[in-house]
Design a protein around this nucleic acid. Structure first.
Lengths: 155, 155
DNA sequence: TATTGTTATACTCTATAACTATA
DNA sequence: TATAGTTATAGAGTATAACAATA
């Protein structure tokens, strides 16, 4: 599409969107094979970093709405991958933590996802690949969290 | 989030999605200021590469459904940014091409978008930035087009 | 009264199906 | 009958509003 005009490049948003779609599409079969939804996987990963005191706090840290992770929490709990216990000190809140089974499931799935990623990234020479991932991580860490983007969009 | 564990990195899909959301959110105000929708902008950019003989063909090249660009084509035409003329040889088909005004509008908007991108990318050292963009472009060009991802997703 | 989790509702975006006009 | 474009309908994903329990 651009080889006849070597100095030209697509918009970053367009390229990032294409990469995001492709990598997400590559992940989905892995998640399905291990009975996890995309959000379920994100929740599991977040809880593996440490327990959380309320569902709302968990939702904030992963950039989700508190109402849309409820089904995933139900499912993860039923599968025995997370614990969800009423806080004795404040019985409105639910203490969330990952179980040993959840930790194992996450590692298995993450390994499968890494395999798929490698398949897509191997079009880059090994050195470029590492530099690319480091730069992408640096950017992602520096970007405004999802919560603040909605407001930007308005005007 | 990851500084205490330097060898760790997020999934590529997660990082790419965050980058895509942030850059898209940064683009939207620019587009709005110049009365273009996201798809309108993509259409305008595609037609600036050359005229197209049918709407369906245009939709395919930009990875959109033929039904969902109709409103954008209407709008672009009313704004005088594109021409949409029945093909004399086959009056079912609509010949699509960009006008001079459309070309100018695209250049203006693209410049504004580049400014916003710079703002986000300036967190990377200049050399890294260039290498990152080249790698991202190489990956985006090599990735399967959007059309084929849907099928992958199914299983 | 305020907050946590939940359920119900509405809205946006997209895909699918049905229609028209040409061929 | 087949195809290009269009319109109407339905579906998925998300956000907003309303609700029950607890503080």
């Amino acid at each position: 599409m651009s080889d006849w005009r070597p100095s030209w490049r697509d918009d970053v948003a367009a390229m990032a969107t294409r990469l995001a779609r492709a990598t997400t599409a590559a992940e989905l079969p892995v998640l399905r094979r291990h009975d996890l939804s995309m959000w379920g996987y994100v929740v599991l990963a977040a809880l593996t970093e440490g327990p959380v005191r309320t569902q709302a706090a968990l939702a904030r840290t992963i950039g989700a709405d508190k109402t849309r992770i409820i089904g995933d929490l139900d499912d993860l709990q039923h599968q025995g991958l997370i614990r969800r216990e009423p806080d004795p000190a404040d019985r409105r809140a639910h203490l969330l933590s990952v179980t040993e089974a959840g930790r194992r499931r996450l590692e298995t799935v993450r390994a499968g996802i890494r395999e798929q990623e490698e398949r897509l990234l191997e079009r880059l020479p090994a050195g470029d690949r590492e530099r690319f991932l480091r730069a992408l991580q640096a950017l992602a860490d520096a970007l405004p969290p999802d919560d603040e983007l909605g407001q930007q969009e308005i005007r």
